[in-house]
């Protein structure tokens, strides 16, 4: 899976939680939760969904490193 495919997978998972999101409007460098209206439960479900979809363990202690879309993709890339 290249970075574009990985980003697409992450956005697809995000859109399962927040289907109002337009993938083209997302800025990979800005915190996701500043761009998309996600409450705490949405965020948790998003991260759990990534785990289920991609099989990558995301321990709670790592959540703070996962703020922007770019960070999420980079984090997953390193562990796939």
């Amino acid at each position: 899976m290249d970075d574009t495919e990985l980003r697409d997978a992450v956005v697809a998972e995000l859109r399962r939680i927040a289907p109002e999101v337009d993938a083209d409007d997302l800025d990979d460098r800005r915190p996701l939760r500043r761009q998309v209206d996600l409450d705490s439960l949405d965020w948790l479900r998003f991260l759990l969904g990534l785990h289920d979809r991609l099989g990558v363990e995301i321990p709670e202690a790592d959540y703070p490193q996962l703020s922007t879309l770019g960070e999420v993709v980079g984090y997953l890339r390193a562990r796939l």
Partner: peptide, 19 residues
């Protein structure tokens, strides 16, 4: 299903819209 959920989230916000 996703279209209706998206509509609800846009209008109500994540805290109130159905999950």
């Amino acid at each position: 299903r996703l279209d209706i959920l998206a509509h609800a989230r846009r209008r109500l916000g994540a805290a109130v819209a159905p999950k």
